[in-house]
Design a protein around this nucleic acid. Structure first.
Lengths: 206, 206
DNA sequence: TACATCAAACTGGTTATACCAGTTTGATGT
DNA sequence: ACATCAAACTGGTATAACCAGTTTGATGTA
């Protein structure tokens, strides 16, 4: 059973809405999802609250999109710090869970989609291990945006292998309680997402 | 004209709810605010989304509260970075708006409440000047929490004078495009909030 | 054909009402 | 004093209706 918010997010991703494009009306979405209009409104409100959609009175609901560079910039500020906090504060159970996730990632090297799912779970788990309730809530919002954005799955196996090595080093640093190393590893891992951004040079510009 | 969300936030602050305490039922709130239950539900949902409230099915709506230390820790990560970005990217108009706000703050030195309001506006303006849409949205969430928390107004005039000096230096750094200085000034300014936190030593502990 | 006009259809926002199924509560009987 | 249980209350959901702007497309005109 998937929530209506998730169904809506899925629709946005699958139809590949462009920024500023209008979604179907609330009434049509309700019919399509076989739900009531208030329920659809609630799902829309959630995504509006998280900056994914924009609702204009008497006009329609529009895809707001997210500037991938803005998103990555915020992640590069929050997540390395979260990793450092996790290294300093993570409980034994949280550390064990992180190691388990890395093992799962290794087992999922063959599937781009599955690997991406687990990678995402690692990020969330690191944030949770930082033990900061405000940060955890903020990250929920970031996840909504990350997931509504075109999936940045690493299509190449070699890319996934690099990512796995990054994650292993990151979790090892957290496990060892080495905050500076954890911060550095997370920064590296996230920076690997930059080249896939629109406008990033695939070859040096003259 | 105040929004229902704001009225609700005000209620929470004025009645000084304790963490975990239950709010009146949706039906009672609707009657009290002279609004419909769906409208009240929408306001509640907003505050739930922002981590201020928690809604338990068939039980009630509860004040979730915010750990002031967690909140300050997140602000100390995001806002100094935002200040640095603002220094690097702020437009002439944004810089002028910031200078205007500082002038307003100076004029409001005599009123603790008014000074707090302007100080809050300065933080929001600095974040806006960073020109990062994701950051701006996240900060909306932080503001909800900041405002729902017991107002940390600086009761003493001397404290306000110190804060004003901090702000002046901060805005000057942004104006000059000096990112490292802006970062440092924001860190200092926020750190001044720490001593008022519960558990902070008012005198050195032996 | 090209264009201005305008009415009808459609939009999100709001309210009212009713029902559901668990939870809480307090009166009841022992 | 205590266990029992029915009634009141809770948030979650659905249906329906109305509002007032927006959008759209058919219409009539030049």
């Amino acid at each position: 059973m998937t929530s209506l918010t998730e169904q809506l997010r899925q629709l946005i991703r699958d139809r590949d809405y462009r920024i500023g494009e209008r979604l179907p009306s609330e009434r049509e979405l309700a019919e399509r999802f076989d739900a009531s209009r208030p329920s659809v409104r609630r799902a829309i409100a959630t995504l509006v609250e998280h900056g994914v959609l924009e609702s204009r009175d008497r006009s329609g609901v529009y895809f707001r999109g997210t500037d991938p560079q803005d998103l990555l910039a915020v992640r590069l500020v929050l997540e390395p710090w979260a990793a450092a906090e996790a290294a300093a504060r993570a409980s034994r159970a949280e550390a064990a869970a992180l190691r388990g996730l890395v093992a799962q990632a290794e087992a999922a090297l063959d599937s781009a989609a599955e690997f991406a799912r687990i990678d995402s779970a690692v990020h969330a788990a690191v944030v949770a291990a930082a033990n900061n309730a405000v940060l955890s809530d903020l990250y929920l919002s970031l996840r909504q945006r990350i997931m509504a954005t075109r999936a940045q799955t690493s299509a190449l196996r070699s890319t996934r292998e690099t990512a796995l090595a990054d994650l292993g080093a990151l979790i090892a640093a957290i496990d060892a309680g080495d905050a500076p190393a954890a911060r550095e590893r997370m920064t590296e891992h996230l920076s690997a997402l930059a080249p896939s951004l629109p406008g990033a040079p695939s070859a040096p510009t003259p």
